[in-house]
Amino acid sequence: MRSSALLKQIAPLVSRTWYRLSSVTAHSELLLHTDPVLPVIDFSSFASKNDTNDYPRDIIEKLANACEHVGFFYAIGHGISNELLQRTLSVTRQLFNLDSKIKNQYASRSFVNSPKVGNLLGGLGRGYQSVGENVTNSLRDRHEGFDLYRELDTNHPARLQFNKKNSSNKNLPDYREMAIGWNPWPKEFPLFKETINEYKSEMLQAGARVMRGIALSLNLPLNHFESTFNDSFWVIRCIRYPSVYPEDMKSPEYGHGCGEHADYGWLTFVNQDLDSRNCLHVRTNDTSKATYVSADPIVVEEQIALTCNIGDILAFITKNKYRSTRHCVVNPVKPARERVSTPFFFEPNIDAKLRINDTTPECYYGEYLINKVRNNFNYDNNQTQ
Rank of each mutant, 00 (worst) to 15 (best):
S130N: 14
P157G: 09
S108Y: 15
S138M: 02
D147M: 06
R150K: 15
V135S: 05
K116Q: 15
D153P: 13
N137T: 02
A158I: 02
T136V: 11
R109G: 01
L160H: 00
G118W: 13
Y128C: 09
L148A: 01
R142S: 02
N137V: 00
V117P: 13
D153K: 06
L152K: 02
S110I: 06
R140S: 04
T154V: 15
L148N: 09
N119H: 03
V117L: 04
R150L: 05
N113V: 03
N137G: 01
E151I: 14
R150Q: 13
Y149Q: 13
V112I: 12
F146N: 08
L152T: 02
Q129L: 04
N119K: 06
D141H: 13
L152H: 03
L139Q: 04
D141Q: 13
S110V: 02
N137L: 04
P115I: 04
T136S: 05
S130I: 13
G125L: 08
Q129E: 01
R150W: 11
G123N: 06
S130V: 11
N119G: 05
Y149A: 11
H143I: 10
D153A: 14
G125E: 10
L121Q: 11
G127C: 09
L160G: 01
P115L: 03
E133K: 14
N119V: 11
D147Q: 10
H143W: 04
Y106A: 00
N134K: 11
P157I: 11
N134P: 07
F111D: 07
V117M: 05
G122S: 03
L121D: 08
E144Y: 14
S110D: 05
Y128I: 12
S138N: 07
F162L: 00
S114R: 00
D147E: 07
F162M: 00
R140Q: 11
H156I: 04
P157C: 10
H143P: 00
R109F: 00
S108D: 08
R126K: 09
R126E: 10
L160W: 05
D153F: 13
L139D: 01
G122Q: 06
E133W: 15
Q129G: 06
L160I: 05
R140H: 09
K103T: 14
Q129K: 13
S114H: 04
A107L: 09
R159C: 02
F111N: 08
E151M: 12
V117A: 01
L139S: 02
G132H: 09
N119C: 07
V135L: 12
Y128N: 11
R150Y: 07
S130T: 15
D147H: 09
L152C: 06
Q105T: 06
R109D: 01
G125V: 10
R159E: 12
S130F: 13
R109N: 02
R150G: 01
N155Q: 10
L152D: 05
V112E: 09
T136E: 03
L160Q: 03
Y128D: 13
R142A: 01
V117R: 03
A158C: 03
A107H: 14
G118L: 07
